[in-house]
């Protein structure tokens, strides 16, 4: 690793070059891309619930793969257009057949628990995408599962294929109160050994986590996939001290620790740059991290010996990193 390399190089190994083989807009605002290797051939298999980090112009966004994960020549992702977003979804919605995109290999951060007796899948809106992958894998591997899917009336992405795939294991709701009542009823009475997985808007995830806790579910049985970290404030300035070189890197308000490190010529592997993927974890020697990511567990946060440098900052004026 040398200081002259651009900081992203370390994370760029294993990049997939993919051509858009098909575009489908079955539901307004939601585009499904079929991606194949430009040169053809098989793509890496992946655990259900995995995502690709795709280069979307000047952004890098994580999109869930919707297949069952077994080796195939195609990947599929479905992307909701967010007109008020940062442009990643708009980039995807401008793609046409034949365009070439680059993406990471599949990354698994939301896999089914292999020892689960039953899988309770809860999806809201475009949060259906990792759940479609889970449902396909569950069917393929004959796992016990059910899917509760809340969507806007007439805007249920993948609804027809889910009906074919899941049969009576699918319950779809066009109204939020009905959806939440069904989620509560399920959480109130499922066999010990069940794990619940939720992906969707933040209020749905919060409802599942809170209701599960209230009904006696240990956190270890509850798994959530968030779209992205909430909008974060610019934060207080602090100094990062690099223990191995003795270098001091100032991190001004409004600049992330990751950006400051990159500007100082320190290469840190990173992907999503929004506190989700876990790639940019750096070890902390002293100082208290101000955790703002969605990746570290409560226990890891409490240990205070690592920080996700893309979004997290420092409580103390100085944070000593093992770099």
């Amino acid at each position: 690793m040398t200081a002259t390399l651009p900081a992203r190089t370390a994370a760029r190994t294993g990049v997939l070059v993919l051509a858009v083989a098909a575009v489908a807009d079955d539901v307004p605002g939601i585009r499904t891309l079929t991606l194949r290797r430009s040169e053809g051939g098989p793509l890496p298999a992946y655990p259900a619930g995995s995502h690709l980090v795709m280069d979307c112009g000047d952004r890098r966004n994580a999109y869930s793969l919707t297949g069952d994960g077994s080796p195939a020549e195609e990947y599929r992702v479905s992307v909701l257009l967010c007109p008020d977003g940062d442009g990643g979804s708009a980039f995807v919605h401008r793609l046409a057949v034949g365009d070439v995109v680059t993406a990471s290999r599949p990354r698994s951060a939301f896999a089914p628990v292999s020892t689960a007796r039953h899988h309770l899948l809860v999806a809201g809106g475009i949060g259906i995408t990792p759940m479609l992958s889970h449902a396909r894998a569950a069917v393929r591997w004959k796992r016990s599962f059910e899917l509760l899917y809340g969507h806007r009336p007439g805007a249920g992405a993948h609804l027809d294929e889910l009906r074919d795939l899941c049969g009576d294991r699918l319950a779809a709701y066009g109204s939020t109160p009905e959806m939440l009542a069904a989620v509560r009823a399920a959480l109130a009475d499922r066999p010990l050994g069940t794990h619940v997985y939720v992906c969707g808007p933040a209020p749905l995830i919060a409802f599942v986590e809170e209701t599960a806790a209230e009904l006696g579910w240990p956190a270890e049985r509850v798994h959530a996939e968030r779209f992205s970290a909430a909008d974060l404030d610019p934060g207080e300035p602090f100094t990062a001290r690099l223990a191995r070189s003795g270098t001091r890197v100032p991190v001004p308000s409004g600049t992330s620790l990751l950006s400051a490190l990159e500007e100082a010529g320190v290469a840190v592997p990173n992907l999503c740059r929004q506190g989700v993927c876990g790639e940019c974890r750096v070890p902390v020697r002293s100082g208290r991290p101000l955790h703002r990511d969605l990746y570290l567990s409560e226990a890891e946060r409490a240990a205070g010996d690592a920080v996700m440098c893309c979004v997290s900052r420092s409580v103390d004026d100085e944070l000593e990193l093992d770099l």
Binding site: L187, R190, P191, L192, G193, T194, L215, G216, W217
Partner: peptide, 10 residues
């Protein structure tokens, strides 16, 4: 008992 238990059991 485990076989008949529901989540929330300890």
């Amino acid at each position: 008992r485990i076989a008949g238990a529901r989540v929330g059991w300890r």
